[in-house]
Design a protein around this nucleic acid. Sequence first.
DNA 1: ACGATGATGAAC
DNA 2: TTCATCATCGTA
Length: 211
Amino acid sequence: MKRKILPQKFFTRPALQVARDLLGKFLIREFPSPGGVDAPRGRGGLKQIALMITEVEAYDGPRDKASHASRGETRRNAIMFGAGGYFYVYLCYGMYEMLNIVTGAKDYPAAILLRSAIINFPLIRGVDCRRGRTGCVTDNMVLDGPGKLTRFLKIDHSFNKKPADKSTSLWFEDRGVKIPDKMIRRAPRIGVAYAGPIWSKKKYRFFLTKT
DNA sequence: ACGATGATGAAC
DNA sequence: TTCATCATCGTA
């Protein structure tokens, strides 16, 4: 199976396009592997966790009232105003780290929030699919929610502003999974009622559905 | 339905 | 310097 690290070029495109294309791609997290009985699955004493992305949300441009960028550049959201391909990580509700990947060109603030993923790919095998709380496809390893995802992968604000490549120990791969449009659903984003009737209803949430 | 929990940004 | 808010989650 081919494994191609998604280059920066993948992310320097419009947010909605990147969001759709991230479904079925893999988020790879690399950890140092302590020596001992447990043989490292990766190379050179490193162990990798690969999650297939099943749900994302786009935050697109300075006019998007649901986006942190809608009120201009601040220290927190500065990375959103840079070029695509860098992580934007922030603390939400005092205890949950939200993982985003910045998209688009420099000076156009946009990012994709990674909401859900699965770890043993029932979608591919066609077994044991069920829906999680947000309507996204999950399986027994439920990473259904942005806070759960970062907690599982041990991602915190130290990843903020880092590039999505191997130097960060966190990157994306295309592992050859093709997701037909028929398997993708769009819906309003979650938890953005504050954005008002127009922007809170935009179908900027993308997720995989069964069949 | 609600409380935990702390950074953020806007007001003062 | 305060204070309301918040791209959530687990328990009820």
